[in-house]
Nucleic acid binder design. Structure first.
Lengths: 189, 189
DNA sequence: CATAAAACCGACCATGCGGTCAAGAGTGTT
DNA sequence: AACACTCTTGACCGCATGGTCGGTTTTATG
C-alpha cells in the first residue's frame, strides 16, 4: 500500500491556520487574497488548496478551532463565578486577537450551513455567561438577563478594538477592572 | 450662462448615501458591489459615479455624515450627565444601524488621509464621554479613565449586534438599563 | 528497491469587480 | 429658440481574484 498522510500533517495545517488568520485579520477577510495568505505562510497558493477545499473552508477551520478552545476555557472557568469567567475570557483572547477579530466580522460571510456549528458554539458561551449572571441576580426577567449578558460580551468583545499591548492598562489589569465594573453594575439594574 | 446644479441635487445624493449604506451594511462593504448598490438605489452604476468619484468617496460621505450628526447629538446631550449621554447615543443609532455598522468595520479600509477626519470625529465623541465619566469619578487615573470610557463604548457599540427590533427589551428600555448599569459599575472601579 | 500516493509548485483560466466612455434626454439661462 | 451644461444610461475595459491543472519531488509502505 502507498504512503498515508504525513506525520506532521496536522502541524502544517495548524501553521496555515495561524498564518492565514493573522493575514486575514490584518487585511480584512474579504480584501485578503489567498495568494497573499500563501506568501505570508511561505507556501504556494496551490498548497493551501491541497489542505483546504476553499477560502471559506479555511476560514471555517480557523473559527471552529478558535471557538472550540474558547468554549473549553469557559467551561473550565465557569465554576469561579462571573469575575473568574471575565478574566478567563480576556486571558484566552491573548494571542488570539486575529481569530477573535475574524469571528466578529467575517463569520457572517459564511454560508448558513457553515455558520450553524459556529453559532452553536457562540450560543454555548452566551448560555454559560447568562448562567453566571443569573447566579448573582436570579431575580432578573429573561429579557433583562439577556440584555445584561450581552452587555458583558460587549465589554469583552470591544477590548481588542481599543487596547494596544504595552500602552495603558495591561490585559490582566483591565480584566480586574472589568470584573469589578460588571459586578458593581449588576447591582444597579 | 448655462444651467447649474439641479435643485434636488442634495436630496438625490442623500438618497444614494442612504441606499448605499443599507446595501453596504447588509452585504459587507468589501463584498458589496457598486452595481448592486446602484440597483438597490434604482439607478445605474454610472450615475453613482456622477455623484461620487469612487466607492471610497461614497463610503467617506456616508461615515462623515453619520459621525457629524452623532457629534452634534452628543454635544447637545453632554449637559445631562452620563446617563443622558448614553440614552442620547443609543437613540441616535436608531435608523442608523447601517451607518453605525459601516463605521465599525469599514472605516479601517479607507486610506489614512480619508480616515483622519473621521477619526477626529470619533476622538471628539470619546473625549466627551471621558469628561462625563470623569465628572462622576474625578479620582480615576488617566489609564483607568480611558479604560472605563472604552468599556462604556463597548456596551453601546455592541448593542446593534444582538438587539433585534421587536424582540426583547426596547431600545429605550435598554438605554435605561445600560445607564443604570454604567452608573453602578462606575462605583465599583 | 519499486511504487503509488502525498506534498508541493508555476502557470493558467473564468469571473466579477471598480471604473470609464460616448451618447442621449432633460432643463435652467440668455 | 438656441445653448450649454447636468442628468442618466448601457456597453465596455483592465485587472485582481478564487480556484484549477499538469507536472515534479518526496516519502511511507510492500
Amino acid at each position: 500500500m502507498p504512503r498515508g498522510i504525513a506525520r506532521d500533517h496536522d502541524e502544517k495545517r495548524g501553521g496555515l491556520r495561524k498564518g492565514a488568520a493573522a493575514y486575514f485579520a490584518r487585511h480584512g477577510y474579504d480584501r485578503a487574497s489567498m495568494t497573499g495568505a500563501a506568501r505570508e505562510c511561505g507556501v504556494s497558493k496551490a498548497l493551501i488548496y491541497h489542505y483546504y477545499d476553499s477560502k471559506e473552508a479555511l476560514l471555517f477551520d480557523i473559527l471552529d478551532t478558535h471557538l472550540s478552545e474558547l468554549v473549553a476555557v469557559v467551561d473550565e472557568a465557569k465554576g469561579n463565578g462571573l469575575p473568574g469567567l471575565i478574566r478567563a475570557i480576556l486571558s484566552a483572547y491573548e494571542d488570539a486577537d486575529a481569530e477573535h477579530k475574524l469571528q466578529l466580522d467575517a463569520l457572517a460571510t459564511l454560508p448558513p450551513e457553515m455558520q450553524a456549528p459556529l453559532v452553536a458554539h457562540q450560543r454555548r458561551l452566551v448560555t454559560i455567561m447568562a448562567d453566571a449572571v443569573a447566579a448573582d441576580r436570579p431575580d432578573l426577567s429573561p429579557d433583562r438577563l439577556r440584555a445584561v449578558t450581552m452587555t458583558v460580551f460587549g465589554i469583552l468583545n470591544w477590548f481588542y478594538m481599543w487596547h494596544r499591548p504595552g500602552r495603558g492598562l495591561s490585559r490582566a489589569a483591565y480584566a480586574d477592572l472589568a470584573a469589578d465594573f460588571v459586578q458593581a453594575g449588576l447591582k444597579g439594574v
